[in-house]
């Protein structure tokens, strides 16, 4: 079986992981338009080549980032999400509409 290196648990069978899709910058949900939100939600680069993606080690529910070549099926590297996301992102709740 293909082996993926979990930054927390070490090398494991790929069947222990779940693919989470591309790492995409999330727009501020309170400020963005419906259209931009839908684009962030649904549109994919779906690159044939090297991609940066979310993966989850299911037994520990640990989410991390993997760089992978989608043509050769090689996992290039894996690292904790904290290497990319350095600080907590807080979103202000959207103001209630006055009726």
């Amino acid at each position: 079986m293909k082996i993926m290196n979990c930054p927390l648990n070490g090398p494991r069978n790929i069947s222990e992981f779940v693919w989470g899709g591309e790492v995409k910058p999330m727009p501020d949900p309170a400020a963005t338009s419906d259209q931009d939100w839908a684009e962030w939600l649904f549109l994919e680069n779906n690159e044939a080549g090297i991609v940066r993606e979310w993966w989850c080690h299911v037994p520990t529910s640990f989410w991390f980032i993997a760089e992978r070549n989608t043509v050769t099926d090689e996992i290039l590297k894996t690292y904790p999400a904290g290497d990319v996301f350095k600080s907590r992102v807080d979103f202000a709740a959207k103001a209630e509409k006055q009726s």
């Binding site: 079986m1 648990n9 494991r12 069978n13 069947s15 222990e16 080690h57 299911v58 037994p59 520990t60």
Partner: peptide, 24 residues
């Protein structure tokens, strides 16, 4: 999938892994 032989998996070691296709 994890090697649990004593020389690779010391006393007190924990593997959070998949056993018979379920998380364990």
């Amino acid at each position: 999938g994890v090697d649990l032989r004593r020389e690779h998996f010391a006393e007190g070691a924990i593997a959070q892994t998949s056993v018979a296709k379920m998380s364990a």
